[in-house]
Simulated scan of single mutants.
Amino acid sequence: MAEVARAVGLPYPTARHWCKDRPEPKQQVTAMRCFRCRDKVGSPATLGQYAYLLGLYLGDGHLVIARVPVLRIFCADAWPDLITACENAMRKVLATSVQRVQKQGCVAVQSYGKHWPCLFPQHGPGKKHERPIVLADWQRRIVEACPGDFLRGLFHSDGCRVSNRVTVRGKQYVYPRYMFVNESTDIMGLCQWALDLLGIAWRMNRRNCLSVARRDAVATPDHHVGPKS
């Protein structure tokens, strides 16, 4: 190190800083955080958070491709814990910085990062239900490993857990029910596939509305999804 300093005519501390202490370029650091741009695919915890974030993105997310891409997930003000869970997932998957931008009735949880397009190749112009939504093979493997996390993201965005009330022969019965509503037939198909992976019985009430209502079937999403809060 001393020879290098003498050769270039720099003080020794300066040469040492440039050779050893200089931080990596920010873009390189970000690439190391992106599990698609490094050798290791990520820990199971990170992949579970990614599956959750993918579900949120397919429901209420939007990826803007600009000089620095920005991922935005829109969360209703009524669910503060969901907003926090979304922010935590972004930080765990890639982001070092996440902002909350207040809108009318909702919060846009957003993060700027060059590598968001690596993780969400479904981005594109137009509304999701007006274009094909197909998971890449590596995304399908993550969902197959973490179907509960993926379903939690889907139901936290475009789904809900409700108490269904029916009256039979003058007696009222109340039972829990999960509903998922989405205009995209591709996204609806992904929800059905994830439910099948966990052996959860479902049926379609309408073209764009899925229901999980059988008592034994509801117990599984109760474990993985639960009510919004």
Rank of each mutant, 00 (worst) to 15 (best):
G170E: 08
I187H: 00
Q139H: 03
G189K: 05
K127I: 08
H62M: 06
S184I: 06
T96K: 10
G148E: 02
F35S: 07
G226L: 03
C86V: 13
P69H: 07
A145S: 11
P13E: 12
E87V: 04
G159I: 02
D158M: 01
F35T: 10
G159N: 01
R67A: 07
V41S: 13
R91F: 03
G55A: 00
C191E: 01
V107M: 05
C34A: 03
A45H: 09
G55E: 06
A45S: 11
K228F: 01
T185S: 12
A194Y: 00
K26L: 12
V98G: 02
A15C: 14
V93R: 01
G42K: 03
K127E: 13
S229R: 15
M32P: 11
L195Y: 03
F35C: 12
Y50F: 09
V174T: 15
F155R: 02
A213S: 15
A76I: 00
M179A: 13
M90R: 02
V107Q: 03
W202V: 12
M32V: 13
G9F: 08
C106G: 04
K228Y: 00
V68G: 06
A145E: 14
R207S: 11
V168C: 07
R72D: 08
Q49A: 14
T14S: 10
T46H: 11
K26D: 14
V143R: 05
E24C: 02
E144I: 06
G124N: 11
G199W: 02
G113C: 05
K26P: 07
T46E: 05
R36F: 00
L94T: 02
L195R: 07
D39Y: 10
K171Y: 05
P25F: 05
M179T: 13
P125H: 14
R215Q: 13
T30R: 13
